[in-house]
Nucleic acid binder design. Structure first.
Lengths: 338, 338
DNA sequence: GCGTTTTGTCGAAGCGCTTCGACAACTGCC
DNA sequence: GGCAGTTGTCGAAGCGCTTCGACAAAACGC
């Protein structure tokens, strides 16, 4: 493996000149630059990442902390990860993958040992225990989510409150008055994962503002959980005409269940889903949905990290506006039915 | 951020002694060790990863190259990743996540710049273009998959040939003679992804050996693709009594389709799936299946990498024996129906 | 009780890079 | 034509760690 000294010798310059060719931090004449680049190419020189990190105190590596338990919403996690890695590469950075179960210790490990320049965390909880820790790190963090106390911490996410409002408004405009929410699993609420909380808060508030009759229910994974949730919704709000589903996993069993019960979508019950676009369109009924823009969120998270790293100004709280795409799962309720 | 020198000063020893306490490479008296460890704890010392890598030429980082296009079998990819990260951590290593689309260049980049000690690659193709590249790297690689020319390269995977044989034998023992294979998407075959090839090869060979009437078909993703594949199988092999499904995505639409057509599982058609256990049990019919042991494969891949790193002997080709779990999707065919 | 190991510690070199200060050679300007 | 500024390059220091050789002190063998 050739070193910068080998390159310097081959090009007949000093090692520092090679370094400046590489970094562009000082002017180098065209001829010298050409000679150096030729030597680099010929020798197949790649700077040693560790040496570089040691000398410059920059690693060009981002930590991505993902919930790798094989849990719900695996595809969404994957979309985030893909977006983050791709975006990071476009800034000439790499991504170190950590699991959430390492908790605070994991963050501190990679931060203190200077393995990464910045951290991106997913699956943030309302009072996330990692928050105090990341505030003490010398590396900046970007959260995908919005914890209760997010002062001074960069956060990026879909605006789930607005998403809930949007879903309800859409249904209300179509004449629906009695609407149920099928939420994430109780475990997600128990952890107070911020997207669940925020969606629920938006749902309740908008329901109130619009004077709707609504009822909300978490939903255990699996067909049985969906059955139970639906039964509860039906008894608590008889004659409901629409469902908002904020639970990717529940979507399929729910549609099956409605079908089996002879309740047609959208004729008998309208459905608005909050899920990735491709999930919405892969269902037996093409679902009207609000997209979870995992790709955008991941990309923006990386971009935010980069701005933080070079002290450019950022929006500390970046909530992406939801957009609802009409497909085939909502119908207009005629006034006589209201 | 304290350095090893700070620790040494605080403990009243030389930096090298601190280093030896950390690495255990030389005997250190109990008292000295205690003093050093106290100083480390008090100062919150963490060795600088870059400095360490530079001095020792070991990074304690593994590269994991995953197909991050949001493609088929996302959950399986995720399971591999989880297993790899977890296993790596248990060996005190971290994981750098690369995407397959960076191709050979990505591997060479991280290897040449000494960012990683070893590489683990997923989604291997029959004549994978990355193979020549990894042979030239100074870091060892472990493949999850089995390319055509795998001499001298460590490979770990489920034994897909044996899996196909096992599925067919199971069905044959239950009296099935006319059996269709619903394979992965044409794109997977086109890439000659090794698991698809190997499964198909095993299927054809065992079919032959057992004298079965079989027909095989790739299957485009989506309900339409499944419909087409099933139609083809039905016309090419009228009266088939069983399906082997080596396509996680197709499973659900396939069952829906059969149901819609009034073909009951297992009464009218038996099904053996090759998929993760939890997918098999999440279907409307509990499926008899051969598990894809992603967790084991990932763990073994890491373990193999570790052995390679400290020059311990390994099995260069490690094909895990498949195991079939009987659930509710296969029935015995009575002799009169044979 | 004297050589011989073993044990425990230190100092120094060096890993491969970046960066700072120095400086020579130009360039431009009145 | 002399002074300031710019351009292009170099040498050396230093980033924080590991590791090697050296060596004193203790333990061992006969």
């Amino acid at each position: 493996m050739p070193t910068i000294n080998d390159v310097a010798r081959a090009a007949g310059v000093s090692p520092s000149t090679v370094s400046y060719v590489l970094s562009g931090r000082r002017p180098i004449s065209a001829e010298t630059r050409a000679r150096v680049q030729a030597a680099i190419a010929e020798l197949g020189f790649h700077p040693h990442a560790g040496a570089r990190a040691l000398a410059s105190s920059k690693t060009n590596v981002l930590a991505l902390v993902a919930p790798l338990r094989v849990d719900v919403n695996v595809p969404v996690i994957m979309q985030f990860a893909t977006a983050v890695v791709t975006a990071a590469r476009s800034y000439n950075h790499d991504v170190l993958l950590l699991t959430k179960d390492e908790g605070t210790a994991g963050l501190e490990r990679v931060a203190h040992s200077t393995m990464v320049d910045a951290l991106i965390l997913m699956d943030i909880e309302r009072d996330d225990v990692r928050l105090p820790a990341i505030r003490t790190l010398k590396q900046p963090s970007v959260l995908i989510g919005l914890p209760a106390d997010h002062a001074g911490v960069a956060c990026v996410d879909l605006d789930f409150e607005a998403a809930a409002a949007l879903a309800l408004k859409h249904l209300a405009e179509h004449g629906h008055q009695r609407i149920g929410l099928v939420g994430p699993s109780p475990a997600v609420y128990r952890r107070q994962t911020t997207y669940a909380d925020r969606f629920l808060a938006g749902f309740l508030q908008t329901s109130n503002e619009l004077g709707l009759r609504t009822v909300t229910h978490p939903c255990e994974p699996g067909a049985e959980g969906v059955r139970a949730a639906l039964a509860d919704l039906d008894t608590e709000l008889p004659g409901l005409t629409a469902l908002v589903v904020h639970n990717e996993e529940a979507l399929r069993p729910l549609l099956d269940l409605l079908h089996a019960a002879g309740r047609r979508v959208p004729e008998d019950v309208s459905v608005v889903a909050i899920c990735p676009r491709d999930v919405a369109t892969a269902m037996p009924v093409n679902l009207t949905s609000i997209d979870i823009p995992a790709h955008d969120v991941g990309t923006i998270a990386v971009e935010t990290a980069m701005r933080l790293l070079d002290n450019r100004p950022i929006d500390y709280t970046r909530l992406l506006e939801p957009s609802l795409v009409e497909r085939a799962s909502c119908r207009e309720i005629s006034p006589s039915h209201r």
